[in-house]
Every structure is written in structure tokens, then in C-alpha cells.
Simulated assay, not measured.
Amino acid sequence: MHDIIIIGGGPAGMTAAVYAARKMLDTLLLTKDLGGQMMWTRDIENYLGFQYISGPELIGKFEEHVRHYPTNIVYEEVTELERSADGIFIVHCGDKEYRAKTVVIASGKRPRRLGIPGETEYTGRGVGYCATCDGPLYAGKAVAVVGGGNSALQAAIELAAIASQVYLVVRGGIKADPVVVEKLQTTRKIEVLRGYVARGIYGGETVEKFVVAAGEGKERNLAVQGVFVEIGLDPNTEFVAGLTDLNEYKEIEVDCRTATGVPGLFAAGDVASGPDKQIIIAAGDGAKAALVAYEYLLHNF
């Protein structure tokens, strides 16, 4: 029996672990890996205290801080979460289960898929969801990036430094921060295809062609070796469905103190409802969730 189980090893989960450990709580951190979306980010320029730091560097600093405390980290994927009649949470990881008096869900989000022919077949063979991770594999090659937000534009800018040609496929308008848009406009080797949608990905052993269209009869066959999908993220909340309320985006509904409608259950970071998704906000949510969980334990156990 643990005082608190934290599900997720991103900035929210790792910060929650630090604050829980500082309160001398028996803490278990369950995660598939440490870092979350920071692992996909090369340039971080808005985390307080660092004018510039890469995602892997910031993960390293977070991990070093977490391991300074007696936190038990188990690398498992959570498949189900339930609450017993006596108020104890049971966390299932395949055929294993863990029990706790409180739970903080900080499971983050995962890349959204296009759902077009060839996407699944060529994932890992030319289709990717992390330009920071896989970009170096496409040095001197032509690639396409799908999306019109900050992550898509940043991916295109990163890839332009090593690729021979970058196509940015934008279905609607560009919705990114002005500083990112300005950088895109001054970056060479990027062709922006506005109003185009993805139709299919084709090739042999690896990707050779990406078909996009801008209406009937207006189709383009892009000769690319890589396609990076940057069209948004879906929350990892399947394991908690039915236990607590989710909003229209499948995020966990929380109040201003990270509490859900279930006593002892809290949610922090990108998986929780809220208009803004930033590393610093996720970290703050994680700290808040751990402190509120500690308060709950004082009054209920």
C-alpha cells in the first residue's frame, strides 16, 4: 500500500514525485519512460531559469532532481485504474497491480494520427511523429511535415537545417506563435502548401511518395523519403474512462486544485482540462496535485 501513486513521467509527474517525496509520502511513480513530450522537443526557450535548453537536457535535470529523493520508479504501462468500496485505488499494469490511498494522473498526451492509407504500414519506415528524435535520419533527403501549429512549424524549421527540401502541408490556416511564424518565413528550403490535405503514403521498403490534395483534381505527388505528422495530441485517458469525468477532448475534468470528482484522485499536466499546455504549467500542476493529495491524506487516513 502506497500513500500516493503517480501515473506518468513527464514534467507534471516528475514534479509531483519531488513534492510528494518532500512530504515523506510513500511514493510510487509508474511510467513507460521519463520525459514525456519533452523527449520530442529540441529547443525550449520559455522555461524559466533557462534562456535556452534542449528537451533531453531538461529531462536530465528533472530526473536528477527526482532521484535525489527516495521515490520508487517502476517502468510499467497502466492499463486500468479502479477505486474500491473502501476508497483505495487499484492500478493495473497488465497482470500486475499496485494499491494506493491517492493517485495523481499525469499521463500526458500522444501524437494524433492522420488515418490515411500507408500511415500505419510505414510508421518507423519513413513516417514519424518526432522530428527531433528522427530528423537526423533524413539528412540530405526530402521530407514533409503535416500540421499548422507550433509543433509543425518548429519541426519544419528543424528539418530544413538538414533536409534537401521540406514541404509543410497545412490543411487550414497557420496557428502558431508570431515568433515561430517569423522564423519559418526566414528559413530556406521550406515550401508551404496551404489548403492541402493528406491522401496517402506510398513506397517500397520505405516511403517514396506522399500524396496531398487541395480539392477535386488538384493533387500533388510529393517525392519524399519522410513524413512527419504534427497535427495535435490525444490524451492518454483510456485507462481511467468510466471512473471520472472527461471533457469533449477526452481530458480529465479537474477544478483549480487539480481535484477530480473522485475523492483522492487528482490530475495534472496536459492530460487535465485547461486551456494552456506548457512545460512550466504542467510542472506547477504536478506540484499542486502532490500538495493537495498530501492534504487529503492528512484528513482522511
Rank of each mutant, 00 (worst) to 15 (best):
E64I: 13
E121L: 09
I59R: 04
T71V: 15
Y75G: 05
Y69V: 10
G135F: 06
I90Y: 04
K96S: 13
D134N: 06
T79D: 00
G118L: 12
K101Q: 12
G126Q: 08
Y75Q: 11
E121F: 11
E63D: 13
G118T: 10
L137I: 13
Y122G: 05
T132I: 06
G128V: 06
Y98W: 02
I105S: 01
K109M: 13
V103S: 02
R125N: 08
T120Q: 14
A139Y: 10
E63W: 09
V127S: 01
E97I: 11
I90G: 06
E82R: 12
R99Y: 07
R113E: 14
E76C: 02
Y138A: 08
H68D: 11
V78Y: 00
G87H: 09
R110Q: 14
E119M: 07
C93D: 00
F89I: 03
V103P: 04
I73K: 05
R113I: 06
R112Q: 12
T79Y: 09
H65C: 09
P70I: 08
V104P: 03
T132P: 05
Y98N: 01
F62V: 04
S84C: 06
H68A: 15
E82Q: 12
R99M: 08
R112A: 13
N72A: 09
G126D: 05
I59P: 04
A139M: 12
K96P: 03
R67C: 12
Y75F: 15
A131M: 06
K101Y: 08
L81F: 00
A131H: 01
I59L: 10
L137G: 08
V103D: 00
A85M: 07
I90V: 14
G135R: 01
Y129V: 07
A139P: 03
L137V: 11
D86F: 11
N72Q: 15
G128C: 04
R110E: 15
P111H: 04
G115L: 11
L114Q: 11
Y129I: 10
A131E: 05
H68F: 14
A106E: 02
G87R: 08
G135Y: 00
G94Y: 01
L137F: 15
G108S: 07
K109Q: 14
G135N: 02
E82T: 13
R112C: 07
G115T: 04
N72V: 10
G124E: 10
Y69A: 06
K61W: 13
V66P: 05
L81H: 01
I90F: 04
V103T: 02
T71F: 09
F89M: 02
